[in-house]
Nucleic acid binder design. Structure first.
Lengths: 327, 327
DNA sequence: CTAGGTGCAAATAATTTGCAGAGGC
DNA sequence: GCCTCTGCAAATTATTTGCACCTAG
């Protein structure tokens, strides 16, 4: 946050039937100006300090209004009262909460989200919202050092990590497809792999350019801790697959593997596309999400063709579904 | 719960400086008799219904006492009040919470726990407790069917799933080591793999016997939904590895892979060993945790020996560490 | 003029506490 | 008899509401 909430053009966001009032406007501005997780009372206090005399009730009502308007999100840290955090263009996330200093830290985890989806689906439960909170002691509290609380511009960290992951994914996809093309023993398969490799290379260039631009804005950016956790296609399947290819993996197997990877990466791009602060990042992600989907289709067609040609009865084996449950 | 809390011998558990009083005893019994997540008021209501006239304050005090004694755990479902669940020999777990009927369902996920550990460690945060809550709509509420709420004997489900996972792990370990032994081109490697295969086979038998015994107690047990989620060694590494072996994976690579798998499975056994209700399950798990650790040592020694013999400069590459962060 | 917005005081709601009396050991 | 439990009523805390008044459109 910090420099990520320059009092945006909220004037449009307001829910129907709203009247522009000085007081509320003021409360909203104070809320947006201060990052972190404020309780209703913190906000009252801040407002009192800044100037006006405002009734608690008004603050509560303003917070309620902000929630409806999509500016604020109510969070419950188990303290017996609620806190509020920005939600305007601020992705849903999870929290680390220090019990000794009370500060909270945010993170995103595609891994956890995927696990949650798996659990919900296994129980036939429709999830609307998830809460993940890790309670414990932060580094500062444990080591005793009171070091200046570094500002946490979470949107920038998010963009950095999303791009890193996207780059790693594309990179390993590129490597995989290049090798697969080199190894493939049949014309059609080779053509498919070559085409995919070409596209991955293009993606990669765009992503790297964007990453460079982002990093240029803040020299320390690269050294900040991870904000978005994802052990996706890059670290997992493609990477493992690329090694195997070197020692000869037939086209069908390679295609199956690629399907799994592209699916994972498609989900990743789609999940986080909407959460980019700026429209360019958003555009890139949506575009890639689509391209990954196209890749998927190409792969599946190729797989079918290949299986059909070899006369496998299993050709109809339903197009790889969701991650199966264990055992 | 249901049949899992037959008013256990809590008399010993009580915190220091406690006096046995009829009232409190009664409150505790009522609490233990009713499964689910009770609010202080639910409990008051239940007690009133059963008989005695008890002051709310007394119930609150009894709940506080139960928490200290390790009988009850306070949970916050964001309703603005707390609920309490059994904690006596009832493992920490996560929740699915239906917003429309208010019921909550429990699950365990080693996957999520592992992700949480990764996040905490990346932020140098010492986690003491984690909360994972999935809010949404349960199947019954969505489909309109009011079907009788099936009892959820979570301990039994836990044992079932833990055993299933353990069996799958051992099974794929067995397959992997057998193949590795068959494929290995050097005497020492073969001996190591054979020994490990033998041990996995023994484990497997014990686990399967135990599983059969468990299932015999409840014919429906096998069809109940998953309670413990874990995509561990079985679905991941060993399984993938076994396939690769078929097409020739050298001993060093095979050993490295095995190390990763054994480490994952060791963690799994260790993490859940203490959560078994009965001592036999607990004993089995602890025993296996140890054996997996021994396997690890065997593997690492073998790996070192092998790397050394081949004169690799990388022999000192530190014994595979924790899961690395991405990119 | 009129639908909201605001302030203040009173109402809720869950939980805690002070204090006098009851009860185990 | 001492120390802990109980009950009841009052206190606390976070949040909501009723109602009279104010104000922007």
């Amino acid at each position: 946050m910090t420099h990520t909430h320059p009092t945006p053009d909220l004037d449009q966001l307001k829910p129907a039937g709203t009247r522009r009032s000085g007081k509320r406007e003021f409360i909203v501005n104070v809320f947006l100006r201060h990052e972190g997780h404020l309780s209703a009372d913190d906000l009252v206090e801040l407002i009192r300090r800044e100037d006006s005399r405002i009734s608690r009730a008004t603050v509560y009502r303003a917070l309620q209004w902000m929630e409806e308007a999509g500016i604020a999100r109510k969070v419950d840290f188990g303290e017996g009262r609620f806190r509020f955090e920005h939600s305007y263009r601020h992705p849903r996330h999870f929290h680390l909460i220090c019990k000794s200093c009370g500060r909270s830290f945010e993170f995103l985890s595609s891994d956890i989200e995927a696990s949650i989806e798996e659990v919900a689906s296994a129980r036939a439960f429709t999830a609307h919202q998830s809460v993940v909170q890790i309670y414990g002691a932060c580094e500062a509290c444990r080591t005793g050092r009171t070091e200046a609380a570094e500002p946490v511009p979470s949107e920038v960290l998010f963009a950095r990590d999303a791009l890193r992951i996207a780059i790693a994914t594309e990179r390993s996809g590129l490597e995989f497809y290049s090798r697969a093309a080199a190894v493939s023993r049949n014309r059609r398969g080779r053509a498919v792999f070559e085409r995919l490799a070409r596209e991955e290379r293009e993606h990669l260039e765009k992503l790297e350019a964007r990453y460079q631009r982002l990093v240029a804005q803040d020299p320390q950016l690269e050294s900040r801790p991870t904000f978005l956790f994802f052990k996706g296609a890059a670290n997992g399947l493609f990477a493992a697959g690329a090694e195997d290819l070197a020692r000869g993996l037939d086209d069908r197997k390679a295609l199956m593997l690629a399907v799994r990877c592209e699916r994972t990466s498609h989900r990743f791009f789609r999940r986080y596309a909407g959460q980019f602060e700026d429209t360019e990042g958003r555009r890139i992600f949506f575009e890639f999400a689509n391209e990954e989907r196209e890749h998927l289709e190409v792969l599946i067609r190729a797989y079918r063709a290949l299986s059909g040609r070899r006369g496998r009865a299993r050709a109809s084996r339903r197009a790889p579904t969701r991650s199966r449950a264990q055992a």
